[in-house]
């Protein structure tokens, strides 16, 4: 039962090929095989959203996806957001509005916010809260995260 399966996944625009055990979770593939440790493991039980990445453009909890399921697909992680030294508007928003304290939930929050703004570029606060309801933050009380996402939505709006 130690078979491995060859997979090819485009991660942050770069093609990655590997032979993986089918039971390898996407989050472990990202963190351990590719050394992309920005994606965190919080609960490991599909609850907290710390492991959120975009798979084929949609937010998923990467602790609840096998790496083999991502074969042939596109994955975006927090490492893929900034362009060199230029932060993504969501990263700027979290910076400006103090959207984090310990930062553990932040990569997942930002990837969920990205999914939200793709569907709804100018959400009201209730929509923002719904959009991040799959992500748990133990520090901030959420208010600054909501402010950060609103701030980013304003930056991203076409002038």
């Amino acid at each position: 039962m130690s078979e491995t399966v060859p997979i090819t996944v485009r991660v942050n625009g770069r093609e990655r090929t590997a032979a993986v055990a089918p039971r390898l979770l996407l989050v472990h593939f990202l963190r351990e095989s590719l050394n992309l440790t920005g994606t965190h493991v919080g609960c490991d039980t599909s609850q907290c959203g710390a492991c959120t990445v975009l798979l084929d453009g949609r937010s998923v909890k990467s602790c609840t996806v096998f790496a083999v399921q991502a074969d042939g697909e596109e994955v975006q992680t927090i490492e893929g957001l900034a362009a060199g030294d230029d932060l993504h508007p969501l990263q700027d928003g979290f910076w400006e509005e103090h959207g984090l304290q310990c930062g553990y939930c932040t990569p997942g929050m930002i990837m969920s916010a990205l999914n939200l703004l793709r569907e709804n570029p100018s959400p009201d606060d209730a929509r923002i809260r719904e959009g991040i309801s799959g992500n748990i933050c133990r520090c901030t009380g959420y208010q600054h995260i909501v402010n950060a996402i609103r701030n980013a939505a304003e930056r991203m709006a076409p002038a």
Partner: peptide
């Protein structure tokens, strides 16, 4: 259902 990530999968 659940949250955005659950609905996406």
């Amino acid at each position: 259902i659940g949250d955005a990530q659950v609905r996406n999968r």
